[in-house]
Write a protein that binds this DNA or RNA. Structure first.
Length: 980
RNA sequence: GCCCGUGUAACCCAACUGGCAGAGGUAGUGGACUUAAAAUCCAUUCAGUGCGGGUUCGAAUCCCGCCACGGGUACCA
């Protein structure tokens, strides 16, 4: 079974065993088994045209080691791989190369599969899927229909079929309000608030559909979106960088209203946030999702616009009401003005004729500015008075209503009550426009002292400071935004004075509620997910548009809606941000575009789904990738995704270990959780969360080089002043670098195509073998850390692997004479072996592969010094090595005379009694300083050790003439004598 | 600005839950083997843990205040 190499020749050995694995389907995952299961998943890659670089497989190798280890532990492992092949990167590549994306995608996938197989990764390739397979995206479309046919029931806090809602409306268990909201009959406040309700029977079909659209989880809406003219498409919030450019390609993005498909992810905000508690994820990722969801608790407060003598807005209807959201209802008495976002439609209603022109000009100006421009303008606040006044409900005081772009339409109600004394932004604005600042929270003394204006008082005089703050808060450089004690907060009905912030908040909220002036409210930063793209290379929506604008979902039976073949699939990008979007599918043949049903001609939806759609559920497809009846068989899904795994029962369920980059923290990982929860609510999947344990691997970084124009040059062709390749001397001091004879400068960054510093795994495999590359990548440092690639360093692990070979195989290629059939004779070898088994196993469990490898190196270095090695010892070593360097391990396993394959050999067990030596070294310290050491019996008591210490002349000398005050003995480690 | 993470030898990385800072690897130096080189083997140099305080018998590890780098976020009321 083994090859007949005499020396360690990775190329032959690796090819041989890869063929063996493929032929024997060694890594086939079987559904259902008496053994415990374990689902280990990698974030699948985009099949880009340039193929893999050594940074890509970092995580894949980690999971592979884990998977191989688990198999040896008799676990039924699911370890699949697939390709996320739709979307912008694949399409951009196709556009650049002038080939159809399907052709390039297939070619790229083929190349990546070859590269991955070359690394000896133990995937069950029979389960491989690409999101672009018709048999795959048919189910992506199916899931979209599930979303379309569902609504989120806030009472039950879960998604339900929309038919349930129709039924409830029909039976008058709930009603539609004039604003399109759905209320339960018993919910009296909501009914009053919404200005009356309508019965379902009284609505026309059109009205019914519109009402339902307000509740479907997938809906079409005209909303301000991120429009990227250069890419010819709109983008999700998550796809726009913080300087207002597209994450893909770094093109400018503009805000503009467009009619688009949206997914109601906001309905799940609360559960997406709360269920983070259920999963075992890195804290920073949880935090990022937490921040992105952005929960804040506060109150909704209703203000009325006054129509009295103060400043009556003439044409305003008498019942104009503005709700604002605030997290600090306790500062309501300090609200001295109100601000509406420029886009707020209420602005039109309330603006007085005198102010109309100024307001219109301001709104126009605000609309013309992109987010980028808004940011560039160093935060100087702008705004215009509307002429209207709102009545502060706590004191009936009229406060001016302004329009300003520091208030965003997309958050809360697009309106705020401004409390300049206790909010930085309001403070700045109030100063800018000389609006009153009224303090209602007394800061703590510490704040007063540090913020005190020097010229006014001595900071020690707290009384004066307090008086100053009460009289003239604007004298302080900043607003006080912390917690304190209320003041100036009293009316006939309620008194907050003297209350600490939290109590005041509580009290005022209750008061508002009892008066019908407001209510407690929770807001989220999360927005609904913009789901349409004006691109060709994506999943078509299973949606038809009727002649009267009605929306008709494609029947489940008629899926898939296949992407039509098209000659010209290019997006028609534009420099003009106002040009209408032109989805490429608009140029599809009429036979595709139009569908006739019952004599009516419908047009297909011309947008496609975004990149993230396919990756939202691929982990489910892997459970049962060839199922043509369902996205995955119920039983298979339950087996792999639910409850029990190799580590015991897990209520959360989900993928047992998911490894990938942190860059997907708020995109893929949030979207996938959302889809999963919908499917869970509808009873299609069995676990509340998709990914139970998540692990983020770090990046591979590398040096890159730029010439004097700042153009990057290929790093592998850079040399130093002595003509040595930069790769060889990258860390050496005093190097100057040249490319084609011209000087270049050295920089450092994430390995990749754009920095021209990619190192292909193929080249490294060629020279050192896949086993060396695998082991080296893991040896570089902790998997989660960022690491620098240095080709030189691979020598170390390469030598290590060769050393193992030489310990076991002789020059003729036979089992070495050093290997003995007898049991292990050397007690030190035995101890070290047990220690190594323990450490390697534990380290793999904790994904600490670097230290596992170090331990094996220590052990091999030891074996090299021994005269003989028991066959059992060699056998155990090979098994420990197998997850890391599987080809070499297979070969040695065969040469030791074992039956292939080592992949199914049992993982070695260690004997805890063998771990410790008979004696241990104890260090003697006097006053914490090293003064000697000695070997003592492992369980020697304190007195014995102290006596041993005193015997040492050096210890005795240091104790000379001193009184021993204290003796600290840490058994087996240290004895510290405190003396003076 | 705010939040998170990381700083140990020329370089990559270890150090159990506070117990001799050094396991492993790279590079360097010296030597063995060799006609020579490669490969291999043996030996060996190099830091007091980013900076400043504190707690402790004892701090890389815990606490406080800074600095540098990396990532996230940015008027979210």
């Amino acid at each position: 079974m083994a090859t007949n190499c005499k020396d360690y020749t990775p190329a032959d050995i690796e090819a041989h065993w890869q063929e063996y694995w493929e032929k024997h389907k060694t890594f086939k995952a079987v559904d259902f088994s008496d053994n415990p299961k374990f689902y280990i998943l990698d974030m699948f890659p985009y099949p880009s045209g340039t193929g893999l670089h050594v940074g890509h497989p970092l995580g894949y190798i980690g999971t592979d080691i884990f998977a191989r280890y688990k198999r040896m532990r008799n676990v039924n492992v699911l370890h699949p791989m697939g390709f996320d092949a739709f979307g912008l990167p694949a399409e951009q590549f196709a556009v650049e190369h002038g080939v159809h994306p399907r052709v390039t995608t297939e070619k790229n996938i083929e190349n990546m599969v070859r590269q991955l197989k070359r690394l000896g990764l133990s995937y069950d390739w029979d389960r491989a899927v690409a999101t672009t397979d018709v048999n795959y995206y048919r189910w992506t479309q199916w899931i979209f229909l599930q979303l379309y046919h569902s609504w989120f029931d806030p009472m039950e806090n879960r998604a339900r079929p929309i038919d349930d809602l129709v039924k409830m409306l029909g039976q008058e268990e709930c009603f539609v309000t004039r604003t399109g909201e759905i209320v339960r009959s018993r919910d009296k406040t909501a009914r009053d608030k919404q200005g009356g309700i309508l019965t379902w029977a009284s609505l026309s079909d059109r009205e019914k559909n519109e009402a339902l659209a307000h509740h479907r989880l997938a809906y079409l809406a005209e909303v301000p979106v991120n429009w990227c003219p250069a890419l010819g498409t709109v983008l999700a919030n998550e796809e726009v960088t913080n300087d207002g450019r597209s994450e893909r390609g770094n093109f400018p993005v503009h805000q503009r209203p467009l009619k688009q498909w949206m997914l109601r992810i906001t309905a799940y905000a609360q559960r997406l946030e709360k269920d983070l508690d259920l999963v075992d994820w890195p804290q920073p990722i949880k935090l990022m999702q937490h921040n992105w969801i952005g929960r804040s608790d506060g109150a909704l407060v209703r203000f009325t616009i006054r129509h009295g003598e103060a400043a009556p807005p003439r044409e305003a209807p008498s019942d104009t009401e503005v709700s604002v959201f605030t997290t600090r209802p306790d500062t309501l008495f300090g609200a001295t003005y109100m601000v509406l976002a420029p886009e707020n439609p209420l602005v039109e209603t309330i603006t007085t004729p005198e102010q109309r022109d100024a307001v219109a000009a301001y709104r126009e100006q605000a609309a013309a500015r992109t987010d980028l421009e808004r940011q560039a303008e160093t935060r100087i606040k702008t705004g215009v008075f509307t002429g209207a006044y709102a009545i502060n409900p706590v004191n009936d005081e009229p406060i001016p209503v302004w329009v300003a772009d520091y208030v965003l339409m997309g958050y809360g109600t697009g309106a705020i009550m401004a409390v300049p004394a206790h909010d930085e932004r309001d403070f700045e604005f109030a100063r800018q426009f000389s609006l009153p600042i009224r303090p209602v929270v007394m800061p703590d003394d510490c704040w007063l002292r540090t913020q005190a204006p020097k010229e006014h008082v001595t900071p020690e005089d707290t009384e004066t400071l307090r008086r100053l703050y009460t009289d003239k808060p604007a004298a302080f450089p900043e607003a006080f935004t912390g917690r304190g004690t209320n003041l100036n907060s009293v009316n006939q009905d309620i008194d907050l004075n003297g209350l600490p912030t939290d109590e005041a908040r509580h009290k005022i909220t209750n008061w508002l509620e009892s008066k019908g002036l407001g209510n407690a409210q929770t807001q989220y930063k999360l927005r609904d997910w913009l789901f349409s793209r004006q691109r060709y290379w994506g999943e078509p929506f299973p949606i038809l548009h009727g002649p009267g604008g009605e929306i008709v979902p494609v029947d489940e039976q008629d899926l898939p809606v296949e992407l039509p073949e098209m000659e010209d699939f290019r997006p028609h990008g534009s420099d003009d941000p106002d040009a209408p979007p032109q989805p490429p599918l608009g140029r599809a043949p009429d036979s595709w575009r139009f569908v006739e049903l019952d004599g009516v001609r419908y047009e297909r939806e011309l947008n496609t789904m975004p990149q993230w759609a396919g990756s939202c559920w691929y982990y489910l497809r892997f459970c049962d990738p060839h199922n043509s009846e369902r996205f995955a068989g119920k039983e298979a899904e339950r087996y792999w995704m639910q409850g029990q795994n190799a580590e015991g029962p897990v209520p959360t369920g989900g993928v047992d270990l998911y490894v990938g980059g942190a860059e997907h923290a708020v995109l893929h990982l949030l979207y996938a959780r959302f889809w999963h929860k919908v499917l869970y609510d509808l009873g299609h999947v069995s676990s509340p969360e998709p990914f139970r344990r998540l692990f983020n691997q770090g990046y591979i970084q590398a040096y890159y080089y730029e010439d004097e124009r700042g153009i990057r040059v290929p790093a592998d062709q850079v040399v130093d002043q002595d003509g040595k390749s930069a790769e060889q001397v990258q860390d050496a001091p005093d190097r100057r670098f040249f490319y084609e004879g011209r000087p270049v400068t050295q920089h450092y960054g994430k390995m990749g195509k754009s920095l021209k510093n990619a190192v292909a795994p193929d080249d490294v495999c060629e020279e050192y073998g896949a086993d060396a590359l695998r082991t080296y990548l893991m040896f570089l440092g902790p998997l989660e850390a960022m690491k620098t690639w240095n080709t030189q360093g691979i020598e170390g692990v390469s030598r290590f692997l060769k050393r193992i070979w030489r310990e076991i195989v002789d020059r003729e290629g036979n089992r070495g004479s050093k290997i003995r059939e007898t049991a292990e004779q050397n007690p030190e070898t035995l101890r070290l072996l047990n220690e190594t088994i323990k450490k390697v196993g534990e380290d793999i469990e904790e994904m600490r592969f670097n230290t596992a490898i170090s331990q094996m190196m220590i052990f091999v270095n030891h074996l090299q010094k021994c005269d003989s090695i028991a066959r059992d010892t060699a056998n155990a070593l090979v098994r420990l090595l197998a997850p890391f360097a599987p080809h070499l391990a297979e070969e040695l396993w065969a040469r030791l005379g074992e039956t292939p394959s080592v992949t199914s050999a049992p993982w070695p067990e260690y004997d805890p009694s063998r771990l410790e030596a008979e004696t241990v070294k104890v260090v003697f310290q006097i006053n914490g300083k090293y003064r000697g050491d000695a070997e003592v019996a492992k369980n020697a008591d304190r007195e014995t050790v102290l006596a041993a210490a005193r015997e040492q002349p050096r210890v005795a000398a240091h104790l000379e003439g001193k009184t021993v005050r204290k003796v600290i003995y840490v058994p087996g480690k240290i004895l510290n004598i405190v003396a003076s």
